[in-house]
């Protein structure tokens, strides 16, 4: 297996909870300042991938009406939006029946992107789709931008326009690690042991990847296998609890 210990993933993309808070705060703060200055935060991404903030347009009238302006999002609200789109990413993945690796990679790209930017600066829907497209390329499961766009009724040009900014924000560190395969095997074993093959309880790998114990940060401040261990043990403890409840009912 490609060596996690010496990878850019381990060297550059694992943070302490404190570092993560600082990064989220910095991105949020920057977006708020742009909102103050320009009255809008959404960045324009040109066809060639170049970026521009909205033009400042602060007239006296604007200043007077400042309190009627769009209110910026708080860090907590941003996190909620991110989690929403992380779950949306799962829907895209299910629609296209991509391998788990695509989902895991796209998700890590999405999380990393929003370490650098605020959701007020780049539309999460667009970034989420671009992350899926990038993950397909890097994991050698290539789907055309047009096909991806059609499959979810979106303009594929938007995916292509955002591609470079995603790569640049990820600093081109595109080889990522997610222990989806070993966990899948483990989950199968757990299901059989705990509830038998015909049981209604199903552990969803997607849930594990997206939610975990701390949905926003798990894959950014823990090594992949630790994340999975924590998540799986949580799920298993819930399953065991459910098993006991079922026995009590019987």
């Amino acid at each position: 297996m490609a060596d996690f210990q010496t990878s850019t993933h381990r060297a550059k993309w694992i943070f302490s909870p404190q570092q993560l808070v600082e990064k989220y705060r910095a991105a949020n703060q920057r977006a708020k300042q742009i909102l103050e200055k320009c009255g809008a935060t959404l960045m324009e991404v040109d066809v060639n991938g170049s970026l521009s903030y909205p033009e400042p347009h602060m007239t006296a009238k604007d200043s007077a009406e400042k309190h009627y302006r769009t209110k910026p999002l708080s860090i907590e609200e941003e996190q909620c939006i991110k989690v929403f789109y992380e779950n949306k990413l799962q829907e895209v993945y299910n629609n296209f029946r991509f391998p788990h690796k695509i989902q895991a990679t796209a998700l890590i790209y999405f999380k990393r992107f929003y370490l650098q930017w605020s959701v007020m600066e780049h539309q999460p829907k667009h970034i989420m789709l671009t992350c899926v497209y990038a993950a397909c390329k890097i994991e050698e499961n290539h789907v055309s931008a047009e096909e991806l766009g059609k499959g979810i009724s979106q303009d594929h040009q938007m995916i292509l326009n955002n591609e470079m900014i995603v790569y640049q924000s990820l600093e081109f560190d595109l080889i990522v690690y997610a222990p989806y395969r070993s966990v899948e095997g483990f989950i199968n074993d757990v299901e059989v042991c705990l509830v038998g093959p015909d049981a209604a309880v199903k552990l969803c790998l997607g849930d594990l990847l997206v939610m975990g114990s701390n949905p926003e940060t798990a894959s950014l401040h823990m090594q992949g296998n630790s994340v999975m261990l924590v998540m799986t043990s949580l799920k298993c403890s819930r399953l065991c609890k459910r098993q006991q409840d079922l026995k009590l009912i019987k």
Binding site: Y133, A134, K137, I138, E140, H142, S144, A145, I159, L160, E163, M164, Y167, F172, D173, L174, I175
Partner: peptide, 12 residues
């Protein structure tokens, strides 16, 4: 199709 996969692979 944007950045060629070979370029992406080489860079990453």
């Amino acid at each position: 199709e944007g950045v060629p996969p070979t370029t992406l692979r080489e860079v990453s």
